[in-house]
């Protein structure tokens, strides 16, 4: 495991209790992710992409194996330590945008900063910057209900990046978007990756996303079947 390692997983096994039995969702997962990677977990529905992403994010716990994320050994960490890691160093983007409906774009994006106890002035600066990044400055005071699907997902991206995390986990971020919006948000994320060295892990089966990735890990029935690295003209060299 190198010093640059963002995620390091060895011999991961994940089983869910089903009835009196176990369902094995992930097995024999070994994986190392360097800083500033732009990587995708790709596989058919039910192959375990979300489960792996949740384990990396500390939202779900492994049955066996070691998972080290940003220097923290998740298996031996407490609920609060993992929460703190998410709060300070991670960002999440989901398929459904999960904006809080009663809050404006500004307030939704502001929440991670409130949780990180950033003071008001700095908060305003960072929120304005993040919203500008995703091109929503003119909608900053709108509520989610007044936004299109693409605008909602851009808001969710702004919320995921506002506190400048080291690692962003994105689960099917384009699944509810049309082609134009999908490319738009992928370009935003490529830019983030290049300018801030933010690492990205996508879970996807969307060809449009794959076209941007520099590394693809293929999952089938909970196992890694292929790990591809390549230069990608759309997202710059690896």
């Amino acid at each position: 495991m190198s010093n640059n390692s963002v995620v390091n997983i060895t011999n991961l096994l994940k089983q869910f209790p089903v009835g009196g039995d176990y369902f094995t969702a992930l097995s024999d997962i070994n994986l190392n992710l360097e800083n500033a990677e732009f990587m995708g977990l790709v596989g058919p529905s039910g192959s375990g992409k979300t489960t792996l992403l949740n384990i990396i994010g500390g939202l779900d716990s492994p049955t066996k194996g070691n998972v080290n994320v940003l220097g923290m050994e998740l298996g031996s960490s407490s609920h609060n330590e993992r929460a703190n890691l998410r709060k300070t160093k991670m960002g999440f983007i989901f398929q459904s945008y999960n904006l809080l409906p009663v809050y404006t774009v500004f307030e939704n994006v502001e929440l991670p900063l409130i949780l990180n106890k950033v003071e008001t002035q700095e908060r305003n600066r960072l929120v304005t910057q993040a919203v500008d990044w995703v091109g929503l400055s003119d909608k900053i005071d709108s509520r989610p209900a007044q936004l299109s699907g693409g605008e909602c997902q851009r808001t969710a991206i702004a919320r995921a990046i506002v506190h400048k995390p080291t690692l962003i986990l994105a689960d099917e971020p384009t699944a509810n978007l049309d082609a134009e919006n999908s490319h738009h948000i992928m370009n935003i994320m490529v830019r983030l990756n290049k300018e801030l060295d933010t690492s990205f892990i996508f879970a996807t089966h969307d060809e449009k996303i794959m076209a941007y990735l520099r590394r693809i890990i293929h999952l089938e029935d909970g196992q890694i079947v292929k790990d591809e690295h390549f230069d990608n003209p759309k997202s710059g060299k690896n």
């Binding site: 994010g57 939202l59 609920h79 609060n80 929460a83 703190n84 890691l85 998410r86 709060k87 300070t88 991670m90 999440f92 989901f94 459904s96 999960n98 809080l100 929440l111 991670p112 949780l115 990180n116 919320r159």
Partner: peptide, 15 residues
Amino acid sequence: YGEMGIRLAMGETKG
């Protein structure tokens, strides 16, 4: 639950 999930993902503890 959605709101709670998202807040947990953002690093709030259950507490």
